[in-house]
Design a protein around this nucleic acid. Structure first.
Lengths: 110, 110
DNA sequence: CATCTAATGTAAGAAAATATAACAAGAGTG
DNA sequence: CACTCTTGTTATATTTTCTTACATTAGATG
């Protein structure tokens, strides 16, 4: 099997100029949104930013919100809220799985 | 709907340095394989090469063949053979579809 | 063995892309 | 008005990429 399709979306391989072309945002804007903690490119050793297709999708969403007049600060808050939700969900799921294992899981032989 | 997952794989967005990192090939080698018509990056207006994940997979396959001692010329021939096969397949399919349309397709009212 | 070819490394110099920092400016708000 | 948010612009430095040319190595061939 080659690389999972999935992994392409998350792989940070795109430089800022290309991101700018695709999204229509200026490089200035892209760097600013990073400063406001809305996106998190990786860096090469020498400091060049690398983005993923996921980052680009994220930027598209940011554009929409900005056009609606939402400020970066609000967008960030919203992001944190969603993240927290996801965390809680996964914790809940883990707990449930824990319960199930406790009752029906592999038992120590005694 | 966002961009189709599929499209990520074909989008030419990666610069040669990154391709080099991922594949382990030198930039020299990557450009040489292009010269031998094994890969076909796009170019920006100013001439910078852009590769897709597909190109990277292609390069991985090339690496394997080269390690087996296959020469670029042979690899190219093999590529052309496969391409031709695909073409013929699609032509056959189109002809079949054409036949079907002729017999059962939309008819002009008379 | 003497050549040839294929594949790759390396170096030089130019051009393109990116990074950071600082200042400017418009829009909206208290 | 004074302030903040967002973006543009400019300058300068660094990094990346491009092309071309020459060198080298290994294998194939006469």
């Amino acid at each position: 099997m080659a690389l999972k399709e999935e992994s392409y979306k998350d792989k940070k391989v795109i430089t800022i100029g290309t991101v700018s072309e695709i999204t229509g945002l200026s490089e200035r804007q892209i760097r600013y949104y990073e400063e406001r903690k809305l996106i998190f490119p990786e860096r090469t050793q020498k400091g060049t930013r690398k983005y993923s297709f996921n980052d680009i999708e994220q930027l598209m969403e940011i554009v929409e919100k900005m056009e609606e007049g939402v400020q970066t600060y609000e967008i960030r808050k919203e992001m944190l809220r969603k993240e927290k939700q996801l965390n809680e969900k996964s914790v809940r799921e883990q707990m449930i799985r824990g319960q199930l294992n406790a009752q029906f899981g592999i038992q120590k032989p005694r």
